[in-house]
């Protein structure tokens, strides 16, 4: 099978969906002629023209509000927020508007748009361009959150997200953009809300997503340990059924995420595991996440703050 990068997979998904459905259009800061901060949308302007590939002013609130409005009016916008750190500027539109209309209109209004945004550290971008703010979005009813860890998942999930009738946050990890994996040329989508077991094992359930999932896979492969690795793929709603089935088998859990530890995604997953399969736990659940401090710019300090392979290895060893 051919291999393409995570970034190319995302671009392919956008192109295919824009070709398939004239209601799909793309907008964001510097995404047209420049091709976006990370080059995801390079070539899109030439393919679809300025009507469907639109630069916006530097206002995340405006971008998100316009997307929600266009979605209500029957369009299916894709928007790019240049860094996930800036999503706080779009919070009011997300939390108080876009995600509520479907409920408050008793289902009469649909708000189908996808907000793509790159997250995560590891490139020395410092505290305002390195965060993984997934947990901030966890508690928003009506929102779906998707975070692929491979090129294959990125394409399948993005296509499914564009076709979904709800506001969706699509989280892309910066360091994954260049990662290459097998992606078929044939059309496919991946159901939202479904996690997947990327490696089977009986001794420990490791739950992760995004870049940390890939780091975990490398560590476990190196250790050769009987660790079952679950890629969440969708962060909201969490596929708790798959997780609990695995926990019932292994009795031990490690959750690895790149966001801050306090109030993190892992905290929610731990709570749901304890609610559903307390009697199967054979050890305290372990969480591995970023330290609760702003992400430093200095690469050495940044590595200290973010989870990494050696921290994952240590956590696995402590549990096995």
């Amino acid at each position: 099978m051919r291999t393409i990068s995570y970034l190319e997979a995302i671009r392919e998904a956008i192109i295919e969906e824009m070709k398939r459905d004239p209601a799909v259009f793309f907008m964001g800061e510097d995404i047209a002629a420049y091709g976006g901060a990370f080059g995801v949308s390079k070539g899109l302007l030439q393919l679809f023209g300025p009507e469907r590939v639109r630069n916006t002013p530097m206002s995340e609130a405006a971008i998100t509000g316009v997307a929600a409005g266009a979605a209500i009016a029957g369009m299916r916008p894709i928007v790019e927020i240049m860094f996930m750190d800036f999503i706080t500027l779009a919070m009011d539109q997300l939390l108080n508007h876009a995600t509520q209309y479907r409920y408050t209109s008793n289902g009469q209004i649909k708000v189908p748009f996808v907000l793509r945004t790159p997250s995560g550290g590891g490139r020395g971008y410092g505290s305002t361009h390195s965060k993984s703010l997934e947990p901030l979005l966890q508690g928003i009813p009506g929102l779906k959150i998707v975070a692929p860890s491979t090129a294959y998942d990125a394409k399948g999930l993005l296509k499914a997200a564009i076709r979904d009738d709800n506001p969706i946050i699509f989280i892309e990890n910066k360091l994954l953009y260049s990662k290459v994996s097998e992606v078929p040329e044939e059309e496919y989508t991946i159901h939202l809300g479904q996690a997947t077991i990327v490696r089977e094992g009986s001794a420990l359930t490791l739950v992760s997503y995004g870049r940390m999932l890939q780091e975990s896979v490398e560590v476990v492969t190196q250790l050769g340990a009987a660790v079952e690795i679950i890629d969440l793929r969708t962060l909201r709603p969490i596929d708790i059924a798959l997780i609990t089935a695995s926990v019932k088998k292994t009795g031990k859990v490690l959750i690895v995420e790149e966001g801050f530890k306090t109030g993190g995604l892992a905290a929610e997953i731990v709570a749901q595991i304890v609610e559903r399969c307390f009697d199967y736990l054979d050890a305290p659940i372990k969480r591995l996440a970023s330290e609760d401090i702003p992400i430093p710019c200095t690469p050495i300090l940044e590595q200290e703050v973010l989870p990494n392979k050696s921290k994952i290895m240590k956590a696995i060893r402590e549990l096995l």
């Binding site: 009795g251 307390f278 009697d279 199967y280 736990l281 054979d282 050890a283």
Partner: peptide
């Protein structure tokens, strides 16, 4: 551990006589 407690309950064994090998003297499922 909760798992050890469950298995002991299901199998009809009193926990106090089981030697613990887990961390901090915890009886684990195995």
């Amino acid at each position: 551990s909760p798992a050890a407690k469950r298995v002991a309950r299901e199998q009809g064994v009193e926990l106090h006589q089981i030697p613990a090998t887990g961390p901090e003297g915890r009886i684990v499922e195995s």
